[in-house]
Computed example of a mutant assay.
Amino acid sequence: MKVIPSVVALLSLATLSTSVLANTPDFPHLVTTGYGEVVAKPDMAQFTTRVVETTMTAEQSKQAVDKVVSDFLTALKAQGVEGESITSSNLYISPQYHYPKNGKPELVGYRASRTINVTVNDLDKLNQYLDTALNAGINQVDNIQLQVKDPGKYQDQARMAAIKDANNKADFLAEGFDKEIKGVWRIDYNMPSSQPVLMRAMAMDAKTESNTYQDSTIVIRDRVDVIYQLD
């Protein structure tokens, strides 16, 4: 019984070695990694707001939250925000307790909360919508994400820049070693994930973040690994 794990381990190592060797060309070759990036200016945003109310009864906290959310959604729609640009979570209610040093926990009220996500297709109106949230009674903004409407266009540009970078490196290295590139033998590519610009979470005061996003940029990166065959 003790011999079986050793045999399995040897078989695994043999399989791994065969796989590695199979992926290594047996002819003169050159390996390069190309990097590309594009700097884009955000033209849209998404922000998440949350209203939290604590009252003596569950019904009171629910009514308080429902009123704020209703006022906020009504104001957004009046300003031209489409329904598909707004999503909201279900109402969450939890009892709040006071824990004295000696004695049983005491119920002191109920906290209700609800989250609303808003997509801003016109970045110039971001502050306006944040002010609308403030006026409606929203008391927290969890985050603001600055984005671009057509990320694929910028990703294509970054990918092309990565390809050119890989080719330029290969040409330079081959020339430096008095070699010629015969062709491309293998290309490895994994689609990178694009990260939006995240503004810090904040208490609900839109003016504290008034124009900090206006000069922000999004860097979209790409990468490609290439193996070239040499003469």
Score class of each variant (00 low, 15 high):
residue 156 D to E: 11
residue 90 N to F: 06
residue 23 N to R: 06
residue 123 L to K: 04
residue 109 G to D: 02
residue 76 L to N: 05
residue 189 Y to W: 06
residue 189 Y to V: 04
residue 52 V to C: 09
residue 217 T to I: 09
residue 127 N to V: 05
residue 108 V to G: 02
residue 3 V to A: 12
residue 184 V to T: 12
residue 28 P to F: 09
residue 143 N to T: 12
residue 103 G to M: 14
residue 210 S to R: 07
residue 38 V to T: 12
residue 106 E to S: 07
residue 1 M to G: 07
residue 30 L to W: 10
residue 224 V to L: 00
residue 189 Y to M: 02
residue 18 T to E: 10
residue 79 Q to D: 15
residue 178 D to S: 14
residue 35 Y to L: 15
residue 100 P to D: 13
residue 218 I to E: 05
residue 196 P to C: 00
residue 2 K to R: 12
residue 75 A to L: 09
residue 214 Q to R: 13
residue 24 T to H: 11
residue 167 N to W: 05
residue 195 Q to N: 10
residue 83 G to D: 15
residue 40 A to F: 00
residue 91 L to E: 00
residue 23 N to F: 03
residue 4 I to G: 01
residue 2 K to T: 13
residue 219 V to H: 11
residue 65 V to L: 03
residue 152 G to F: 08
residue 84 E to P: 11
residue 227 I to M: 11
residue 31 V to N: 14
residue 43 D to S: 09
residue 210 S to H: 09
residue 178 D to T: 06
residue 25 P to W: 08
residue 207 K to E: 15
residue 216 S to I: 00
residue 10 L to I: 06
residue 202 M to H: 03
residue 194 S to M: 14
residue 54 T to Y: 03
residue 14 A to E: 03
residue 84 E to Y: 15
residue 125 K to M: 13
residue 218 I to K: 03
residue 210 S to C: 02
residue 24 T to M: 10
residue 225 D to S: 11
residue 198 L to S: 03
residue 21 L to Y: 06
residue 71 D to I: 04
residue 137 G to S: 15
residue 139 N to E: 08
residue 76 L to E: 07
residue 161 A to N: 08
residue 50 R to E: 15
residue 157 Q to N: 09
residue 142 D to H: 02
residue 6 S to R: 06
residue 218 I to N: 02
residue 69 V to W: 01
residue 124 D to K: 14
residue 217 T to E: 03
residue 133 A to H: 08
residue 105 P to F: 07
residue 19 S to I: 06
residue 185 W to F: 09
residue 51 V to S: 07
residue 65 V to W: 02
residue 47 F to D: 05
residue 88 S to V: 13
residue 210 S to T: 14
residue 166 A to R: 05
residue 147 Q to S: 02
residue 168 N to R: 15
residue 29 H to Q: 12
residue 25 P to D: 10
residue 106 E to Y: 04
residue 40 A to R: 00
residue 118 V to Q: 04
residue 61 S to G: 00
residue 101 K to G: 15
residue 99 Y to W: 09
residue 125 K to Y: 03
residue 155 Q to V: 10
residue 79 Q to W: 09
